[in-house]
Computed example of a mutant assay.
Amino acid sequence: MSEYLPLFPLNIVVYPGEKLNLHIFEPRYKQLVLDCIMNEKNFGIPTYIQNGVGQYGTEVEILGIEKKYENGEMDIRSKGIRVFKVIKFERTAPGRLYAGGKVEEVVYKNDEDIITKTKIRACMQQLYDALGLKSLSLDLKEDFTSFEIAHQLGLNLEQEYALLQMQRESDRQEAILQHLENILPIVLETERLKERVKLNGHFKSLTPPEF
């Protein structure tokens, strides 16, 4: 079933459950935020990608206005609710300054694979240790989902957007594991290279080989 949403295209990917802080400064989006608050309505953030508004995005709920400025700008707190597909995009909603569009909800299937999840956890811990980010490793929840870790994997915008479109958790897990298995050897080798560079010029205590 489709519905009409105010739309705020941005060159980011927002996932369901994600907290998002935004500074609102353009007149059209100041109007959007005020309309949403007045009418108790959510808005959508379709991903702006490859010089255009993408078909997929996330419905966002405004949690509150953190700060208002004299010029009308504001800082808002928001949260991703659910993913949608844009059926019809309008550059300006009827009678408004901001964009709008007809959207339909994307239904996801939670069919996670525990073995793949265990492999992902191990790879992430290796990655964080190599990068000196052990605090991130410690903060990793036992019951994490693909969307909860997606921004912590070094994915580019296109890869994050591809994850958003995958309707099965198992498919997202496979994509994440493949990405980690691809980048982990590169990161580990880069860290080893940094150590070798640091040692260059230092006095070395080496054991000669036996002949």
Rank of each mutant, 00 (worst) to 15 (best):
K198S: 02
S78Y: 03
I81Y: 02
T116D: 11
L180H: 04
E160I: 04
L157Q: 10
T47M: 09
F147M: 08
A93T: 04
I183T: 11
K194A: 11
D139I: 00
G64A: 03
I183Q: 07
E66L: 10
I45D: 09
V103C: 04
L127V: 15
H151A: 06
T118Q: 08
E104L: 02
E189S: 14
T145W: 10
Y4E: 10
P46V: 15
G201P: 08
F84S: 01
E61V: 10
Q125N: 10
G154H: 05
E66Q: 08
L133E: 12
N156L: 07
G57T: 01
F89T: 14
G72T: 06
E40R: 11
G17R: 01
V197H: 10
E181D: 08
L10C: 13
P46I: 06
K68T: 13
Y4V: 07
E61F: 12
T190A: 15
D171I: 10
P209Y: 04
G95E: 05
G101L: 08
I114T: 14
G44W: 05
D75F: 05
R172C: 07
F89Q: 06
D111P: 02
V187L: 08
P46F: 15
P16Q: 05
K30F: 09
F8E: 08
R192E: 14
P185F: 13
A93I: 12
Q31R: 05
K117A: 00
T116H: 03
H151C: 04
G101S: 06
E148P: 00
T116P: 00
M1Y: 06
Y15K: 01
Y108W: 08
L7C: 06
Q50W: 07
G64D: 08
L153N: 10
N110R: 11
H151L: 07
V13H: 04
P94V: 02
C123P: 09
E70G: 03
I149Y: 06
F211E: 12
K194C: 07
V13P: 07
A175W: 05
N200M: 14
V197T: 11
Y128K: 00
A130H: 02
Q173L: 11
L193V: 12
Q178N: 12
L32P: 00
K134F: 05
P94M: 06
L136H: 13
V14Y: 01
K41Q: 14
D113S: 07
E26L: 13
V53D: 00
E191P: 01
T190I: 03
Y29N: 03
V14R: 01
N200Q: 14
L138N: 15
G132P: 12
